[in-house]
């Protein structure tokens, strides 16, 4: 049995002139929770549709648990479940009927767990899909994926439309899946969600993988934010080694430091600092820094 849940080799997809995905090499070991981030149009959904065999790659290949995504989709799909934030269900079926159909199609369902999920997500399964709100439809899709306890969960903006309470339930469920050794591939724009759940994060931009690592690694590479308050004149920090993005706001100065903080601390101390705050960048800040000036793709 393969130790790699998901692997892509030079996976590429073009739509006419648009290169939606450009030679993606990715490997997700079993049991890991990986966040897949990128601005709108970066190619996240494209990647996932290629993995699922819904689209055909222009180049390269992908496999799931060692099974080729193009040649053995049915066998690969027995091991995974997919959630998208844009799912379209059958309007005339009820929630319960939809779950029953999707469960039978998958083959194996953990029945008690399904019941528990319906309770936890507070879903009324007797309602027709047509009559569900967006968030409630999303719950059906989530339950349908979680209830089969797949080895791999492929999630593309899975919490789209969920309220904060349900978002919390979702996080618990993914945490449980992780504890059971299931692998999770999570594409999301909700940074707090990714931060809370993911072991590693991959960042995609304009179809290219530009960053892959644990949050700790990424933080290490990136800048620390420092905020200082003075009772005298604010010193000029722009010349201090490692310091960038200096912003002065009255008696307060905010800046970013890369590498050693020693030179900055010395300057601050001699200038009579009264208050000092520093914090590691949140994933959101990391992400914004990555996408910064030229980052936004079409």
């Amino acid at each position: 049995m393969s130790d790699t849940a998901l692997r892509t080799e030079g996976l590429s997809k073009r739509f006419g002139d648009v290169v939606a995905l450009d030679h993606l090499d990715l490997e997700v070991p079993r049991g890991e929770v990986v966040g897949y981030l990128g601005p709108n149009g970066a190619g996240k959904t494209t990647t996932i549709r290629l993995l699922l065999g819904l689209s055909r790659p222009t180049e390269g290949r992908a496999e799931i648990f060692g099974l080729d995504c193009r040649r053995q989709p049915v066998r690969a799909h027995r091991r995974l479940a997919f959630v998208t934030g844009e799912a379209n269900l059958w309007p005339s079926l009820t929630g319960a009927e939809t779950l029953s159909l999707l469960g039978r199609v998958h083959g194996h369902v953990d029945e008690p767990y399904r019941g528990a999920l319906i309770d936890r997500f507070d879903l009324d399964p007797t309602k027709k899909v047509r009559a569900y709100s967006k968030g409630n439809r999303q719950k059906v899709v989530l339950i349908a994926a979680l209830m089969v306890r797949p080895d791999l969960l492929v999630l593309d903006e899975p919490t789209s439309g969920l309220d904060p309470l349900m978002e919390q339930v979702f996080r618990h469920c993914v945490q449980e899946a992780k504890d059971r050794g299931q692998t999770v591939f999570l594409s999301s724009h909700v940074m707090s969600e990714v931060e809370a759940l993911c072991d590693r994060v991959a960042i995609l931009r304009q179809g290219r993988l530009i960053e892959m690592g644990t949050l700790a690694e990424m933080r290490h590479l990136s800048a620390l934010t420092v905020e200082a308050r003075f009772d005298r004149t604010v010193p000029d920090l722009s010349a201090v080694p490692g310091v960038s993005a200096v912003e002065v706001d009255g008696p307060t100065v905010r800046c970013q430091v890369r590498g050693s903080v020693e030179p900055l601390v010395k300057v601050l101390a001699s200038a009579g600092v009264t208050e000092l705050l520093s914090h590691e960048p949140s994933l959101e800040e990391l992400f914004l820094a990555q996408y910064g000036a030229d980052g936004h793709a079409g």
């Binding site: 159909l101 027709k128 047509r130």
Partner: peptide, 23 residues
Amino acid sequence: ADRDHAEAHVALLYGPSGLVVRV
């Protein structure tokens, strides 16, 4: 009005073909 609630009838819902018959 379409009824918003309904009892589950799952006899035909074993797969795509059954669903087609149902729908």
